[in-house]
Design a protein around this nucleic acid. Structure first.
Lengths: 186, 186
DNA sequence: TTTGTTTTGGGACGATCGTTCAGGTAGTTT
DNA sequence: AAACTACCTGAACGATCGTCCCAAAACAAA
């Protein structure tokens, strides 16, 4: 019976998590292209071989990082829905604000998430992770109109990816009418 | 007076174009990550130094390729609109078919186009090229309802990028109701 | 303590990378 | 013809890459 966790494994998993966080920071800053064992190790403040010890290959590191990123995004979506519900039916306001935030202060993170999308397009193993936030939304939101809901999901993705190539990020005020149109039932 | 074009420059520009085409094929197959001077040169059947001669750096090669890709996409959109107009007002049918084609037989090309998006998010010089097909659509289509049109554009992008992470590409029949909803005026 | 397991980290190896260079070829101009 | 320009290409350099190896350290079980 081991009531106490192994101190070695505890430290190991902690470092493993730190490496994943460092990898995400590198992706936000330089994109997936900037991820190497050495850049990640430098970002995490660990020796280079530490990343090869905890991840059998660079590909494993990328996959683990993007899956972790997707999980965070899914839980964020979860709480976003929860919060929007408790605030009443001002959904459009809430969504527009979140989009503006994703394209402004959290722009790097948003880019990282779409790099996940594109990597998932080429690596089937990443697809469940990439779809997770869509699934969370689908399971939480009551959708009396299936087609309208699919349009809403597609619209969100489209607004985000188009917002990424704008010269300056759109404000919540600019996004609100579009989001409102997306949410309005007919 | 030079009535005849310089034969040397003619050959040079021809090879330059071949290199760009080869680069696009490499991107479609392996993504931007797979683009190196050597892989592109092998794909084009030219010596490695030929790519460095015609493009001052690997970045220049990528930028030139993605700008060329964007130009092709824009002219395709142009003729697509033109064709849809001449066939009457069955727009939804036409759009759904094009989306299914982009996610099926032309999947690699579609992925390449979204790699352009993501690269444009990091390189401002690429943004006009990435926005070109949006601009073409905006300038050609009469939009009495500005918001509805923006929703349509975002919806198209969302459907495409979400279709890229489906385990199997959606058919035109599956896409039609969503496209129809996007196009229907209210 | 001794033994075994897991993590750590310095060093290095071979491969591949972007890019440069110099000599050679083909085409144009004078 | 000679001079000039533009393109072509084999060879190579230095840098960086992923990954492996092995000894030391930290910790657990005996």
């Amino acid at each position: 019976m081991k009531l106490q966790v192994d101190g070695r494994k505890a430290r190991g998993e902690k470092r493993r998590a730190e490496i994943i966080e460092a990898t995400l920071r590198v992706i936000e800053r330089d994109g997936v292209a900037g991820v190497t064992h050495r850049t990640v190790a430098a970002e995490a403040g660990v020796p280079t071989t530490s990343t090869t010890y905890h991840f059998s290959s660079l590909d494993d590191l990328l996959v683990a990082t993007l899956i972790s990123c997707a999980r965070d995004m899914a839980t964020e979506v979860y709480w976003m829905i929860d919060r929007a519900r408790s605030r009443g039916s001002r959904g459009a306001e809430e969504v527009a604000g979140l989009l503006a935030e994703a394209l402004g202060p959290r722009r790097g993170r948003t880019m990282a998430e779409y790099e996940l999308y594109l990597l998932a397009a080429r690596k089937p193993e990443l697809r469940p992770a990439a779809r997770r936030w869509l699934d969370v939304l689908t399971s939480m939101v009551r959708h009396d109109d299936e087609v309208a809901f699919r349009v809403f999901l597609a619209g969100i993705d489209g607004l985000l990816i188009q917002g990424l190539i704008d010269d300056e990020p759109p404000s919540a005020d600019e996004l609100r009418p579009v989001v409102d149109y997306l949410l309005k039932p007919r």
